[in-house]
């Protein structure tokens, strides 16, 4: 897998109550990833960027919320979420803005 592609796979951390809970309880970290990313790509990207060992990756598609602006019905972009479970002994510390 080429490096350029891997840098584009992870869009950012997904911060929520559930995500923090999982991070503490199960060593799982949640990311927003490119819509066309595969599990293998996410695994490779996380291992490369955070220098950790990944145990497993689960991905799912989220529909963008539909939003109304006055008369116009609009839709936010669909996106893809990845739950990344790390091998025991590894952790990801995101700087500052978790």
């Amino acid at each position: 897998m080429n490096e350029e592609r891997l840098l584009k796979v992870l869009k950012g951390p997904h911060v929520s109550e559930k995500a923090t809970l999982l991070g503490d309880a199960a060593n799982q970290h949640v990311f927003r990833v490119a819509t066309d990313a595969t599990r293998d790509e996410v695994r490779a990207a996380v291992e490369k960027l955070f220098e950790v060992k990944v145990a497993s990756v689960r991905v799912l598609n989220q529909k963008g919320k539909s939003k109304r602006m006055g008369r116009f019905q609009g839709r936010r972009n669909h996106w893809r979420k990845a739950y990344v479970t790390l091998e025991p002994g590894y952790d990801i510390e995101l700087a500052g803005n978790e």
């Binding site: 911060v15 929520s16 109550e17 500052g96 803005n97 978790e98």
Partner: peptide, 18 residues
């Protein structure tokens, strides 16, 4: 208030970090 958390439900760890 931090994005992603309901008000009052922000974990202590997160507040401390920020």
């Amino acid at each position: 208030r931090i994005d992603g958390f309901r008000p009052g439900k922000v974990p202590f760890k997160v507040v401390k970090k920020r």
